[in-house]
Design a protein around this nucleic acid. Structure first.
Length: 198
DNA sequence: AACAGCCACAACCGCCTTAGT
DNA sequence: GACTAAGGCGGTTGTGGCTGT
């Protein structure tokens, strides 16, 4: 969609750039009243000369409660690497598995830190892109069917089936639970035992 | 001390999807 | 079903701070 629509303030008259503490305060106050969904309403009622998208971004990335900033742990980093391998640049999905982290933060972290790391890993021979293709090919139609691929593993003796909707449904996860991660890592180890030491 | 280059990150842009009419 | 407004997402850019020369 267009960033800011014709009705209301135009691009030229809108506030842009860094947010001030006063703006943050106004935004937080307005969201308390109107909720963090109706961004058009929030942007107009708050008196901020910002478009709804800008308000949304500011809230989601900085003002939202329970946000973790900085200090991405080794565990989280490893998780990001693995998830990126599995999901690609689906930052919102990846962020959904890291409580308190935002897609923007993860995206930035990836671009500035992990991108190099990942490409370095890929330079090594035997790091298969085939497996990625297989995983992606299998995430179709609401379920993930991971079949026994002799050419890759040869040691798997049964099909593994995930419900991708369940797998990617992050709505119920509040705490830092690793059940799903374990599931993923187990799968990785079964399918690609040679590639578990990222 | 001054400058250049690099890096990290906040914010913006534009496309796509979804919801409402 | 067509149209419009709004939300969501990923890519990109701008800028401030840090580091090396």
């Amino acid at each position: 969609m267009a960033p800011c629509r014709k009705d209301g303030p135009t691009k030229k008259t809108m506030n842009r750039g860094a947010w001030t503490p006063e703006e943050d305060q106004k935004l937080a106050h307005c969201i308390q009243t109107h909720g963090a969904k109706k961004w058009k309403t929030v942007s107009t009622k708050s008196g901020l000369n910002r478009c709804g998208k800008s308000c949304r971004l500011r809230w989601l990335n900085y003002l939202r409660p329970n946000i973790k900033r900085g200090n991405i742990s080794d565990e989280e980093e490893d998780l990001i690497l693995r998830l990126h391998k599995l999901l690609g640049n689906r930052w919102s999905l990846i962020a959904g598995r890291l409580p308190g982290r935002t897609d923007n933060e993860i995206k930035n972290y990836w671009n500035s830190h992990l991108c190099k790391k990942a490409s370095h890993v890929e330079e090594k021979p035997e790091t298969s892109t085939t497996q990625e293709t297989i995983v992606q090919d299998n995430i179709i139609g609401g379920s993930v069917m991971l079949e026994n691929k002799d050419s890759i593993s040869g040691s798997v003796d049964s099909d593994v089936i995930f419900d991708v909707n369940e797998f990617l449904d992050f709505s119920n996860d509040v705490s830092y639970e690793f059940d799903w991660v374990n599931k993923l890592l187990e799968f990785e180890q079964i399918q690609f035992p040679e590639n578990t030491n990222i």
